Amino acid sequence: GKGKLSKRDGDRLGFPVFPLEWHPEGGEVSSGYRESGYLPEAVVNFLALLGWNPGDDSEIMSMDQLIEKFDLAHCSRSGARFDYEKGRWFNHEYLQQIPDDRLAQLFKPVLRDNGIDPDNFSDDYIARACGLVKGRIYFVRDLWDQAKFFFKEPDSYNPKDIKKRWSEDTPRIMGELIETLRGIDDFSCASAEPIVLDWIASKGYHLGNVMNAFRLAVVGECKGPHMFDITELLGKDETIRRINLAVERIKA
C-alpha cells in the first residue's frame, strides 16, 4: 500500500519481510521467505524488479539475464511499491519450471509431515502426481491440498458436491460404471476415456452428473486435474475400490 514498509508490517499483514526467519533476542520471531516456501531464484527475480525495469516486457529472468539487462537508466527515482501478490506469482512461475522429478523430492518431506510414507510410492508415481497438479500451486506445501487424493482415499466428501451431484440413482449408475471400468484392459487415459464417455452416451445419462459423481467418489470433491489422468495414475483396482467406498458412505 502507501507509505513505507516496516519490518513489523510483514507478519501483521501476512507476508515475510526477511529473507530468513529472524530470531531477535527477547523479541518476536519474524517470518522469512525461505521458511515460507519461496525459491531463492524467485525472490531474486522479484526483488530485482522493485525500482527497476528491463526496458521491455520481460518479467521472468535468470540471474545472468538480470545482469545482462541491468542499466541504471531504468531505475526509478521514486520509491518502489512492494506487491506481495506479485512475489507469490513469481514463486508460482518458477515452480512450473521445476522438473517433476525434482519437485517430487521437494514434496516428500510434506508427505511425511502429513502422515504419508513416500517410500510406499515410487519416485515416478510421486513425480507424475506433482506434474498433474503443479499448475495450481504457489508453494511446494500447496501440493498436499492439491494432490493428497493420490496418496490416500478421501476421508470425507464435500457436502455441497454431494447435494448437487449425488442423487438416489447415483449408486446404481456408479455400479454400472464399475462394470464398465472392469471391462477396460488398457486403463490409460487415452483408452479409458472414450469407452466411459461412449457408455454414458449409450445410456442417455447426463454427462456432467455422472462424471462429477465419479470424481466425487474418487477424489472427495468435484475439482482437480483431468479425471482420466487421475484414474490412469491410481489404476483400475484403486479406482473401483474408491467408487465402492463412496457408494457405501455417501447418502443422497
Rank of each mutant, 00 (worst) to 15 (best):
Y138G: 02
D124Q: 15
D124Y: 13
I98F: 01
E28H: 00
Q97V: 03
D117H: 00
K86T: 00
F187Y: 06
I240A: 01
I67Y: 13
S36Q: 00
P19S: 12
L20R: 10
S58W: 02
Q146W: 11
S6E: 11
R241D: 03
E153A: 00
N209Q: 15
A217D: 05
D57G: 14
E179Y: 14
A147E: 10
D56A: 10
L216R: 07
N209R: 14
D145S: 08
G32Y: 02
R88W: 04
P24A: 03
E168D: 15
K203L: 06
G55Q: 14
W89A: 00
G204A: 04
R249F: 05
D11P: 09
S36M: 00
D119W: 13
L245R: 06
I116C: 12
P54H: 10
R128Y: 06
L143I: 06
E168L: 09
N114D: 02
G27L: 05
A129Y: 05
E176L: 06
V196C: 08
D9Q: 02
G87Q: 01
D64F: 01
Y94K: 07
G135K: 03
P99W: 12
G204N: 12
K4S: 14
G27R: 12
L103S: 06
D124S: 08
L50G: 08
E179K: 13
K152P: 08
K4E: 15
D142Q: 11
D83Y: 10
S78V: 14
R165W: 11
L39S: 00
H92D: 13
H74V: 01
L216V: 02
R136W: 11
L50W: 05
V43H: 12
D9S: 07
L5P: 08
H74F: 11
D119E: 14
K152N: 11
C189D: 15
N120D: 15
K2G: 15
G26V: 03
I200C: 04
E93L: 01
P225A: 01
L106P: 06
N114Q: 12
N212F: 09
A190P: 08
G10D: 05
R12V: 00
